[in-house]
Amino acid sequence: MMIGQLAASTGLPVRTLRFYADAGVLPARERTASGYRLFGPDAVARARLIRTLRELGVGLDDIKRVLSAETSLDEVAAEHVRALDAQIRVLRLQRAVLRAFIGSTDPEELRRMTDLTKLTAEQRRRIVDDYLDAVFGDNPSTVADRLAMGAPELPEDPTPEQVAAWVEIAELLRDPDFVATSRRMAERARAEGPEPDVAQFEVGKAVGELAGPAARAGVDPASADALAVIERLDALSPGPAEDRARRAERIEAFTDRRVGRYWTLVGIINGWAPSQAPEDIVDTWEWYARALRAHA
């Protein structure tokens, strides 16, 4: 059949069929003496298959491989699905970035969001691993293990809040001052010996139960009410009594508001629902340290 007849049978424009023929995916069986292409009876099904695959976004090279039996249609479809999945993930991230940016007027903020969200999951994980390496090195630490296990995992279809949280985390973990502060905490923890025992964990729980309400209520750390809280906590402390000023200094050494912020951001990204916001925990321990100093 002539190319016009093929166009009538398939519903495809002559220009499109000519393009397929020139690309080698729809070869003519022969040519007339005048140079016109003649197509065989299988050209109708072939052209329709090409049109379907092109509508699905499959490239001409892959179509040629299928039609020449170099690969199966199933294999090409699977490859194309993987490619589409990757494109969809990128589009979802781009959509979330733009939604997170709405309301802002800082182009630099949009650039930071775009740059960080274009990273692969492995590259994003590398930011966390680089931080852990810089802080803990090769020294084993339960804190490092906890950070590694609780690393933020940006979902494939993130919300604008999750994108903004990821950008903030990435900037925090790359902040030289935060890295240096974290390293000092880790070095002091190693110098002070093994992990605290169960009794000390119970004291920590009691701090939240007793000092927490006082901090949230705005009780003056230098007041008699604050002293009453301290005395109750003193009675729960295991072992010999410790100087309150020294206890306050230790709390201050291991309390950094940015650490609390980190865990809040991780919770947003990973979809956690914490029983208590990390910032509230920091508020509690900061209040307790001030009260200890006031009544040292």
Results as ranks from 00 to 15, higher is better:
88 I>F: 06
98 L>P: 02
1 M>I: 08
50 I>H: 12
143 V>H: 01
84 L>H: 12
237 S>D: 05
16 T>L: 14
287 W>E: 09
248 A>S: 01
141 S>N: 09
295 H>G: 07
234 D>R: 05
235 A>W: 00
29 R>Y: 09
248 A>N: 02
221 P>C: 11
254 F>A: 04
188 R>P: 04
208 G>V: 02
272 W>P: 13
98 L>D: 07
149 M>A: 12
276 Q>R: 13
19 F>E: 08
87 Q>L: 09
147 L>Q: 01
114 T>S: 13
212 G>S: 08
145 D>K: 05
11 G>S: 08
85 D>R: 15
238 P>F: 00
48 R>N: 12
220 D>C: 06
97 V>W: 01
8 A>R: 14
164 A>V: 13
44 V>E: 05
238 P>Q: 01
191 A>F: 05
106 D>C: 06
179 V>N: 03
276 Q>N: 15
94 Q>Y: 11
148 A>M: 12
17 L>K: 09
229 V>N: 09
120 T>H: 00
38 L>E: 01
284 T>I: 09
88 I>W: 11
91 L>M: 13
42 D>C: 15
207 V>G: 00
201 F>T: 12
136 F>H: 07
246 R>F: 00
7 A>P: 02
124 R>V: 06
263 W>E: 00
170 A>D: 03
95 R>Y: 14
176 P>H: 09
33 A>F: 08
100 A>L: 04
85 D>I: 07
274 P>H: 14
98 L>E: 04
75 E>D: 10
33 A>T: 15
273 A>F: 15
253 A>M: 03
66 V>L: 09
154 L>G: 04
4 G>L: 03
226 A>K: 05
185 M>P: 07
208 G>W: 00
281 I>K: 03
107 P>A: 02
26 L>S: 10
51 R>P: 12
